[in-house]
């Protein structure tokens, strides 16, 4: 029982590998009151403010709710949904965004973290500067970037014209071929700093012996990056990817402020479409938007489960 006398608040795996306690008092078990103490507040909040409303929504999806009259319609909304062109466009856009944009986010974050790690001067300043966009609200980011994308005097077009690339100056948010990409870039601009900080944290906690060994082997930076750093950061990167993925499956505010889903549904996401059907169409019907939300809930859950399985993110627990 020597370990017991070790200072408790020290994050050390200690010399002991074996369980010093008998099975009859397994420390990984707790009495129900203890578990309740830890879990009940969270579960109460969850059931009261998330599960119950969500359940209500699910029930609503089988009804037509016009004003004060509610009538049961069974699966009619779901059948209609299958033939709703706008919904499928919204699904396509959201999928593109959710799968592709996180790569951009995480890659930028990693590269920035590596730049700081490589020991540039004023690293502290850069770290603060690059993180700044994370702090801004979508309303502010939206306003700012709508000015940047402005056709007549936005920075982007002014710069393109100044270097003689006049033909590239475009209506960035107005052209259906460019709008989604433009909004995605804005979103990435906001979040790259966050990914940078997390990557930096992960790099710093890499075992130094490995990096030292690679230096002894005289690895180039590229080789070091692809053969050592990225594989070792895999769990972090995958978790960041999944976090970003979930965020993008729900993306609403920025789109709503910048394009409201236009032009020609080019930036319509599932969230904006749900919102439109619930608040912007000339109807009080909550049944149909509820059905969209219910379907989408299933899709996102499935996607996250598949990603988790594909990435084998279990390993983060062992890491």
């Amino acid at each position: 029982m020597k370990e017991a006398s070790l200072p408790i608040v020290q994050e050390s795996s200690g010399p002991a590998g074996k369980n010093p306690v008998g099975p009859e008092m397994d420390p990984r078990r707790a009495s129900w009151p203890v578990l309740a103490f830890f879990l009940v507040p969270a579960l109460a909040i969850y059931f009261g403010l998330t599960a119950y409303p969500a359940f209500k929504t699910f029930i609503d999806s089988f009804f037509l709710i016009e004003g004060r009259e509610t009538s049961f319609v069974g699966f009619a909304h779901y059948r209609e949904l299958m033939h709703d062109g706008t919904f499928w466009v919204a699904v396509r856009n959201t999928m593109i965004w959710s799968f592709i944009a996180p790569i951009l986010d995480v890659a930028t974050g990693l590269l920035l973290a590596l730049a700081l790690y490589a020991g540039v001067p004023f690293a502290r300043f850069f770290r603060v500067a690059w993180f700044t966009p994370v702090l801004l609200s979508y309303v502010v980011v939206g306003i700012l970037w709508m000015w940047i994308y402005n056709y007549d005097w936005g920075v982007l077009n002014v710069a393109l014209r100044a270097v003689g690339l006049e033909h590239l100056a475009s209506s960035w948010l107005g052209d259906p071929n460019l709008a989604l990409g433009s909004v995605m870039i804005t979103h990435a601009w906001k979040w790259a700093g966050f990914n940078m900080v997390v990557c930096l944290a992960a790099i710093h906690s890499l075992p130094s012996e490995v990096l030292e060994a690679s230096e002894l082997d005289n690895c180039g930076w590229g080789a070091k990056l692809f053969h050592i750093i990225i594989p070792m950061l895999r769990p972090t990167l995958l978790n960041l990817y999944i976090l970003a993925f979930i965020g993008k499956m729900k993306v609403f505010d920025l789109v709503w402020i910048m394009t409201a889903g236009g032009p020609l549904w080019a930036t319509e996401t599932v969230s904006t479409y749900v919102y439109k059907r619930a608040f912007n169409w000339n109807t009080f019907d909550l049944g149909y938007p509820s059905a969209i939300a219910a379907v989408w809930f299933g899709v996102v859950c499935a996607a996250v489960l598949i990603l988790n399985r594909a990435f084998g993110t279990k390993e983060r627990l062992e890491y």
Binding site: P53, K250, S271, V304
Partner: peptide, 12 residues
């Protein structure tokens, strides 16, 4: 619940 579209719990 992290994945639930917020728009719809909104009304409830």
């Amino acid at each position: 619940s992290i994945v639930f579209p917020p728009q719809i719990t909104l009304i409830s």
